[in-house]
Structures are given as structure tokens and as C-alpha cells.
Design a binder for these strands. Structure first.
Lengths: 125, 125
DNA sequence: TATCTATTGATAATAATTCCTATTAAGTGA
DNA sequence: TCACTTAATAGGAATTATTATCAATAGATA
């Protein structure tokens, strides 16, 4: 019995996400994967990205009304420049660990913490 | 010389945001303010909400592809139930303070930290 | 290799947000 | 108080990211 099939589309999408640290939007992923699978559909990209988010293999961030996808699901934070739009990773396990340890939400079962620093990057400030 | 005018629309929008803790979407704000200003336009609500976000008088959260607005701009965290969609405030200054103190981003000027806990609420888990 | 059915490609549909423009009304100064 | 300037509004059209639909295709299993 099969209920999830491994297709070239899925492989190439995940491969691309693992090869970059740029937090691409679905459209950017689409353009990149198109180089390997010229007739891939944008719907397929969205469909698979959402599936990967649901299964926990990909992270989805919402910035400025758009979804950004991240192939790195290890605990890390993000930093966003409000002026130029640059979005970068921040590896600081201390902060997420501290947050989870101290949050104290009786009954609430935390599965994920998202931390986003907004401000101005070196070039823009 | 005037460059920002205080209109009834703005006043009612802000009044509404200050009266609730439900993190309404633009549409919900629109329906609420309509009770006071029946012919207010949805575009006006969006225009003013965005203006308030830019000026720092209102907070904007992105959850599930929608903007949610929060009239409380004091430092606090948010907690979101992935199943029922409930979004609640978490007042825990320790965590944001710790995050800002420990983030260590040379050159980056942090103006705001957003912390979102995702998981299952008491009823849903 | 034949079969089953999950997945795809193409495109239509949806929905949140922004844009456009004639009209209205805040704020200012006479 | 009143007229004037122009920022802001109402209403609706336009835009755009994302999702739904469905016949055709291609993974997995035996």
C-alpha cells in the first residue's frame, strides 16, 4: 500500500531548498526547479511545498504577505531588514531554548517557536 | 503645514483595536467600524492599518496567509493553535528581553522581536 | 509487465490586499 | 467664522499570491 510517492518534482524541490539559504518564495523555487524540469507546474511546487511543511521537512515563514520557504528545519531564528527585505538565519539555540523553557503556558503543547527580529541591516542603517 | 490628518475613520479604527484582544483581520476591523461609520470603505481600513503599523502604533502579525492586527504594541509574545486557529497574547517580558540581549547581530539594528509559539491549545490537544 | 491510484500540468477560481480617481472634509490662517 | 488648500475617503476595479479542479501521467507493488 502506497500513500506517498517520491517523484522527481519533489526531489528537485527539496534539493533546491537544501542548496540555498535565501528563503525563497514559491515562485523562486518554481523558476529554479524549472531548469531541471522545464514543464513543471507552479501548482505542483505549491502543492509539494505545503506537503513538506505539513510533514515537517520544510519551514514556512510569512514575511510581507508572502510565504518564504526554508529547507533548514533545525532550530534557528530569523532576522529581517525592513528596508531592503533581506532575510537571514540566526543560529542561536540559547534563545529558542530559553523561550520554550520559560514560556509557561499551562495546557498548551508547544511544537514550534518562531522568532523574527525586525530592524535595519548594516547596509541600510 | 499639515501632513497627517486625524479623521473619524482613524479614531474609530484605533478605538476598536484598543477595545479588543482578539487580533482581528482587516475585514473584522472593517465590519466593526462599520457600525459607527456605515459607509466606511475597506480600502480606508487597510490604508489606515498599514499607516498605523508603519508609525508603530499598531502591530501586524502574519498567520496562515492573513494579516492580524494588534492594538497592543507593548512587548509581548503570541501563541497560536494550529488546529483551531486561536491566537492569544503571552505576557512574558523575560523572553523578549533575553532574546534581544543575546541575539548578537553585529551592525543590525533591532527594532522589534516577534515570537510566535505554535502548537495545540488545551481544548485541541 | 499490468494494475492501481497518487501525483502532475494546465488553467480556472478564489480571496486578500492594493490601486485609482472624483469627491469630501481636516486643519490653517485671514 | 469662513474660505482655502490638499490630505484622506468611498467605491470599485485591478492585482497578485495561493488553491481547486480534473483529465492525463507515472511511481510503486505484485
Amino acid at each position: 500500500m502506497v500513500d506517498k510517492r517520491l517523484t522527481i518534482q519533489k526531489i528537485k524541490i527539496l534539493e533546491y531548498l537544501h542548496s540555498v539559504h535565501s528563503h525563497p518564495t514559491a515562485d523562486v523555487v518554481y523558476e529554479a526547479v524549472k531548469k531541471h524540469i522545464p514543464n513543471i507546474s507552479l501548482a505542483t511546487v505549491y502543492r509539494n511545498l505545503n506537503q513538506m511543511v505539513d510533514s515537517g521537512d520544510v519551514l514556512r515563514l510569512e514575511i510581507n504577505g508572502e510565504y518564504h520557504f526554508d529547507g533548514d528545519v533545525s532550530k534557528h531564528l530569523h532576522c529581517y531588514c525592513s528596508r531592503c527585505g533581506k532575510l537571514v538565519d540566526v543560529f542561536n539555540k540559547k534563545i529558542t531554548d530559553y523561550a520554550i523553557k520559560n514560556v509557561d503556558l499551562p495546557g498548551f503543547e508547544v511544537s514550534n517557536v518562531q522568532v523574527l527580529f525586525k530592524g535595519l541591516c548594516t547596509k541600510c542603517s
